[in-house]
């Protein structure tokens, strides 16, 4: 079992193809797989569909793949703060499927757990419910949402051991575990790979069964809204 690769492009070798469906972890610019996104940009793979809560900003995160027109469709809950995204969407160059944030997270989790669909109250009576099956349970109306299974999941964690057990840090965990779970293949990038046995097994956030390939790298970890209080 060799999961550790030397670079992001090595780790993606043989996994990328035009028209593929990729699930990505991250919330805003926090905990995004920035090295793998850069490698996907350099690969030139196109017509991509991304399930990702956000689309980054113009020059960071998934935004860099929008600049090169490699993305055909986004499945997201929030796309503000990205001018190029807005331009491509309003001009019809880019398809956008809005999912409520929790519905998107649960679609990923469910897909990874072998659950093809689930009922939720979220979005009932809104545009999100249009065309979806409605069903009443105990006097309340719910809509059917489908689980997501992606061709590839790309995620970012803080630490890993060489078997792919992952530990996240603070709110950088966000969509990374559910995204990892819904990938047929998952590639993770981490800040540090430690020897097996050095992570406390009780403190593993995502077991290595979900992680197929792994790289260690240096992360910029850009901040979107630097907000401070006076000391």
């Amino acid at each position: 079992m060799k999961k550790v690769y030397g670079s992001a492009s090595d780790a993606l070798d043989g996994l990328l193809f035009d028209g593929m469906f990729i699930a990505s972890g991250g919330f805003g610019l926090c905990g995004i797989p920035e090295l793998l996104l850069q490698a996907i940009k350099e690969s030139g793979t196109k017509d991509l569909t991304f399930a990702s809560n956000n689309a980054g900003v113009d020059d960071f995160g998934i935004g860099i793949l929008l600049q090169t027109r490699q993305v055909r469709k986004m499945i997201s809950s929030y796309v503000g703060e990205n001018a190029e995204f807005m331009r491509q969407y309003l001009s019809g160059e880019l398809e956008l499927e809005f999912n409520p944030q929790g519905t998107l997270a649960e679609r990923m989790r469910a897909g990874g757990c072998g659950i093809p669909g689930f009922y939720t109250k979220t979005g009932v009576g809104t545009q999100v419910a249009e065309g979806k099956e409605h069903k009443d349970f105990d006097g309340e109306t719910y809509i059917l949402e489908r689980g997501i299974v992606a061709d590839l999941a790309i995620v970012k964690a803080w630490k890993a051991d060489d078997t792919g057990n992952l530990v996240f840090r603070k709110t950088a965990r966000n969509f990374n575990p559910p995204a990892a779970m819904c990938g047929r293949v998952c590639v993770a990038e981490v800040e540090e790979i430690v020897p097996r046995g050095s992570l406390d097994p009780d403190m593993i956030h995502l077991p290595g069964i979900y992680v197929h390939r792994l790289i260690q790298g240096d992360h910029e970890k850009r901040i979107e809204q630097r907000t401070i209080r006076e000391a």
């Binding site: 929030y78 503000g80 969407y89 944030q101 929790g102 979005g123």
Partner: peptide
């Protein structure tokens, strides 16, 4: 067009 985020 920004999106609903977690509001729904």
């Amino acid at each position: 067009v920004k999106g609903m985020g977690g509001a729904m």
